[in-house]
């Protein structure tokens, strides 16, 4: 929702520095005092568990015994080379244990595809809402937000009902006589996962984009028209660059959680559509190798973090361009 994106973006901007006079110090103490319950909770339930996960990733598990000597073995296992070649989608992996590397690349590609699809789908809708809807805006906004707040599990499951072997599309087409046998390629593949991910997140992202469009000073658009810009040129030179920072931060809020998504690949992915989240789950349960699972999840977070830094650099770039356009 929009406040969430707004607050998240604001958190990234640092405030002005203040001189250390007593009044300021009192204010700081009061501020931290008020924040302390929330901060303590975050430390106890997020920061400490993540620290525990990091510690565990430097230990090793064999069978039921956990070896607590510090080692990089789990991380080494993820990149250890081997003579054996594994082919996947035209890429050759010379790794002793290629599964995590392949799944991470696959998850990043699927998640990026879903993110791009979400932005392309949501942007025109947000544009329509910002520039063309003048009455009942609130109703439109509620209509667009409600799906995001309904159960994620059920939204994903609904795609199984739609795309399944005995699903709505197959049975519908068969009862209309268009096909004779169910289409098997609809479900249990990366495309089904990507469509479902895009569908799950698209209603979350219209509002942040809408806000960044709504904040654009209309007089700038009028000025562009008065100076002879065509509609398309005006969009390309003013609307698009000015809405880009909001759009990119919206994209981040889709990309980051979807890479590690567990429910969607489990329900609609089948064997071909698994993602990195499923591997983490298996390492922690069936394969009983929590330390390796910890290393895989931390590497995944690091890679996501690195990609987010690239995204944020892009935001900086667009901000600069927007300022120049303004």
């Amino acid at each position: 929702m929009v406040e969430v994106a707004d607050t998240a973006v604001r958190a990234g901007l640092s405030g002005p520095r203040h001189p250390a006079d007593p009044a300021r110090r009192r204010e700081a103490r009061a501020g931290y005092g008020l924040m302390s319950p929330a901060l303590l909770l975050m430390v106890a339930v997020l920061a400490l568990p993540l620290a525990a996960l990091i510690v565990l990733s430097f230990w090793t598990q064999s069978g039921f015994t956990l070896d607590r000597t510090f080692t990089l073995a789990n991380y080494w296992r993820l990149i250890a080379p081997s003579d054996r070649e594994v082919e996947w989608m035209g890429l050759t992996f010379r790794l002793a244990y290629p599964v995590p590397a392949i799944l991470i690349i696959k998850s990043l590609v699927m998640s990026l595809t879903a993110t791009v699809a979400v932005i392309l789908l949501a942007y025109p809708m947000a544009y329509f809402l910002a520039f063309r809807v003048h009455r009942n805006k609130a109703a439109w906004i509620i209509l667009l937000t409600v799906p995001f707040w309904t159960s994620y599990l059920l939204r994903v499951f609904s795609w199984k009902v739609v795309l399944g072997y005995n699903g709505a599309i197959n049975s519908g087409l068969m009862s209309l006589g268009i096909i004779d046998a169910p289409l098997e390629f609809l479900l249990y593949n990366p495309a089904a996962v990507t469509i479902t991910l895009a569908h799950s997140w698209v209603s979350f992202i219209v509002l942040p984009i809408y806000v960044s469009l709504e904040k654009i000073d209309r007089s700038m658009l009028e000025a562009a028209s008065d100076l002879g810009d065509s509609k398309w040129k005006r969009f390309r030179r003013i609307t698009l660059p000015l809405s880009m920072p909001g759009t990119i931060s919206a994209a981040l809020l889709v990309f980051i959680p979807t890479v590690g998504d567990y429910v969607t690949p489990e329900l609609v992915g089948g064997p071909g559509g698994t993602m990195i989240g499923s591997l983490v789950q298996q390492l922690f349960t069936k394969q009983n190798n929590a330390p390796l699972g910890a290393a895989v999840s931390l590497v995944m977070m690091l890679i996501i973090g690195a990609m987010v830094l690239i995204f944020l650099t892009l935001i900086g770039y667009w901000r600069m361009r927007a300022r120049r356009a303004a």
């Binding site: 969430v4 607050t7 998240a8 604001r10 958190a11 990234g12 901007l13 640092s14 405030g15 931290y32 924040m35 929330a38 901060l39 975050m42 997020l46 920061a47 993540l50 996960l53 981040l252 809020l253 980051i256 959680p257 890479v259 590690g260 998504d261 567990y262 989240g277 983490v280 789950q281 999840s297 995944m300 977070m301 996501i304 987010v308």
Partner: peptide, 17 residues
């Protein structure tokens, strides 16, 4: 700002992690 960012962190940590 960093304290606020810390509190918004659960938004960007995948729930499986």
């Amino acid at each position: 700002a960093p304290a606020l960012a810390f509190m918004m962190l659960p938004l960007v940590v995948p729930s499986i992690v």
